[in-house]
Amino acid sequence: MSDLHALADTVAVVCLLLGSLLCLTAGLGLVRFPDVLTRMHAGTKPQVLGVLLIMVGGAIRLQGWSATWMLLLVAVFQMMTAPVSAHMISRVAYRRRHVRRDLLLVDELGAGHREAGTPHGDEPADAATARGARGPAGYGQGSLG
């Protein structure tokens, strides 16, 4: 039985150390990478894999069902909310020219030739332009950006 405990402790400590290492690499990537999208690529490493590893390690070490359920809740929240916030930030970053376009290999958003004045999204300002420029019929066109 004590062998089993020692094994569980070892697994937990390895998970915790790997998660901490991912946090360090996220900091390094944030400082060294050139623009918002690549910094976000570095910053999301601990947001998903790091948090999952640390939650697994914590659940093994804490040995109580209430703590385990709460750690599971944190992991599920993180996996649900990380894509949403990353999508919103990257979309705004692309439109705000915070992306180094010379470093992009594929630029699918820039490739489509659209007519001027097309509403380009679901932002509040876009709703105003759509209503002013072309009426409610303008909704739904070019909203993929």
Binding site: V92, A116, G117, T118, E123, A125, A133
Partner: peptide, 17 residues
């Protein structure tokens, strides 16, 4: 992100920039 998105205005060109 919503705040910065609300600051986006109508832009010249293809609406992407």
């Amino acid at each position: 992100a919503r705040y910065i998105g609300g600051m986006l205005r109508r832009s010249p060109g293809d609406g992407q920039d």
